[in-house]
Design a binder for these strands. Structure first.
Lengths: 241, 241
DNA sequence: GGAAGTTAAACGTCTGACGTATTGCCGTCA
DNA sequence: TGACGGCAATACGTCAGACGTTTAACTTCC
């Protein structure tokens, strides 16, 4: 019988290796809250003795946890391994690379744009009602900068959208939306968009800023919707080529 | 904005340790696509020689990558380390633990529910238009099961929502919505909800299934909206206690 | 030709050692 | 007295080598 190779680590492995088991145990201590951010784990030799394994094994388990940003280590006396407190930017970064890979195989532009609409249209509405004056000023600055570099590279089209997300005052919204935005940008903005495209983008952004200025949620939402529909067409166009 | 000195690894470290540098280099090879899923990396000793480091160091770098599900290893002859292909479930799992930790410190119920509404209301609309007959049948089954265990534990309230997400036929939507749902559930459903609450939930679900049966997106969306509003009140109520 | 045993490649783990960063102590000196 | 500078201790970082374990391929024998 021909053995089918498991695509990746999903098939249940008969025995989990020692470093995995140790990582699992420590992880569950952390996510369950038995270990709080800032807590210091025993030193590597102590952990090794506690689990009955060598230091190499402990270190591999710790590397595993630290790459998930659950712990971090520092050297020197009073150094050691500490439980990390979660940073939303960590999650954003992970999502960005993961979704980037997914989009390279399996994830369609349409799916990305659909979810982006679900999030950014309400975000624009929220921004209109929740924004502070400082944030409004920052939005204006971003749009002006976009206008200034009209015709050139447009290096920072993300400025506006990300600022708008912060205006909504919802950390989770930022965390999930920003990676989607980045993936779309990285995948399809290879600098080969016509100049009129960017002019229209600037106009859209400007209109939204004014609606947000007036705290006009309905208009802001509608403008975002139209804006994203235009983007969809442009992206699909680029995708065909 | 009182912030601690260095929350965690963000302060620039003068020198990145060897295993981090190696992990970084390999990671960028993978995300840039120079290494494709299924490709086999050189053996650990070979990598060590190539990078000019010891095998332990290479292994720590590989552990780092494997915990991010970028590579997986298998033993035996013809074993080795291979570039993994991304599995959406991996992302879902990571998001679930990360958001769980975030919700333990900093993320409010309100934020979670707001984003959930943004995603699930359109999802219900999509489900109504995009569902297949098989999926509709599965939804019916889930609701019937809920009704059957009315008054008992309600172990599987997630069945309905997750099935509904799959009906939308948008992988990204599933990936981001499911963790939000799970976090809310784990955090607030400690089995201390009154029986009438569950009865109402079942009614809501049933109404949605019927709307989805008729491919009535407007009604499905509205029902989901009302459903989530009711949940919001219930969650906030529980949160106060 | 098929089943059972052998082999070899690669990962998994351990041990011990040495390097290096960091901190705190402590003594010296102005 | 107080500040500066060096020493020591601690804990992570890295290396080298050895041995165990897993697994697929090869070999042998019936």
């Amino acid at each position: 019988m021909s053995k089918q190779v498991v695509p990746h680590g999903l098939g249940v492995t008969p025995v989990r290796s020692a470093y995995q088991q140790i990582a699992d145990q420590l992880r569950s201590l952390i996510v369950s809250g038995e270990l709080s951010p800032g807590d210091r784990l025993p030193s590597e030799p102590e952990l090794g003795q506690a689990f009955g394994v060598g230091r190499s094994t402990v270190r591999e388990a710790l590397r595993s946890l630290s790459s998930q940003h659950l712990v971090y280590t520092s050297r020197g006396v009073n150094g050691g391994t500490f439980v990390a407190d979660v940073d939303p930017r960590t999650i954003t970064a992970y999502l960005e690379t993961s979704l980037g890979l997914l989009s390279a195989s399996g994830l369609t532009v349409d799916e990305l744009l659909t979810v982006r609409e679900m999030l950014e249209v309400p975000a624009a509405r929220l921004a209109a009602t929740e924004r502070t004056d400082d944030e409004l000023a920052a939005l204006r600055t971003a749009v002006e900068q976009e206008n200034a570099e009209s015709g050139t590279q447009h290096e920072h089209p993300q400025g506006f959208h990300i600022l708008l997300l912060t205006c909504a005052h919802n950390g989770l919204l930022e965390v999930v939306t920003q990676p989607i935005f980045s993936v779309l940008k990285n995948r399809f903005l290879r600098g080969n968009a016509p100049s009129e495209f960017w002019d229209q983008v600037c106009l859209d952004h400007q209109g939204m800023v004014e609606a947000i200025d007036r705290r006009d949620a309905d208009t802001a939402g509608e403008l975002m919707q139209h804006h994203l529909h235009r983007l969809r067409e442009a992206y699909l166009e680029m995708d065909r080529r």
